[in-house]
């Protein structure tokens, strides 16, 4: 199971690098969407690994809250340039 988590961390590093090197804000938002999903799935894996219910519940809540926050942020950034 440890090697699976290490592979997940490697997959998480790709969008972090992308968010660092790309200056377009929508590319950064895409990287953020990827990171938000990946971190909450990692939390879920760890909670199942440890058989810990509280972390699992928090992981599912963060999964849905993170996406809601992303949609909100996308709409705000869309309207930035309107007067």
């Amino acid at each position: 199971m440890d090697s699976i988590l290490i592979a997940m961390i490697l997959a998480l590093l790709i969008p972090i690098y992308e968010a660092w090197q790309d200056d377009n804000i929508w590319q950064k938002m895409l990287a953020f969407a990827s990171i938000a999903t990946k971190t909450s799935i990692m939390m879920l894996v760890i909670s199942v690994l440890r058989d810990d219910w509280s972390i699992g519940v928090v992981a599912v809540i963060i999964l849905s809250v993170g996406e809601a926050g992303l949609m909100l942020l996308a709409h705000l950034i869309k309207r930035l340039n309107e007067v």
Partner: peptide, 21 residues
Amino acid sequence: LAIITLAIWNTVLGYVLAYCS
């Protein structure tokens, strides 16, 4: 619950991001 959340919200998020960008 996680599977249902993923299936619904990730799809909606894709649409919202595409529309906004």
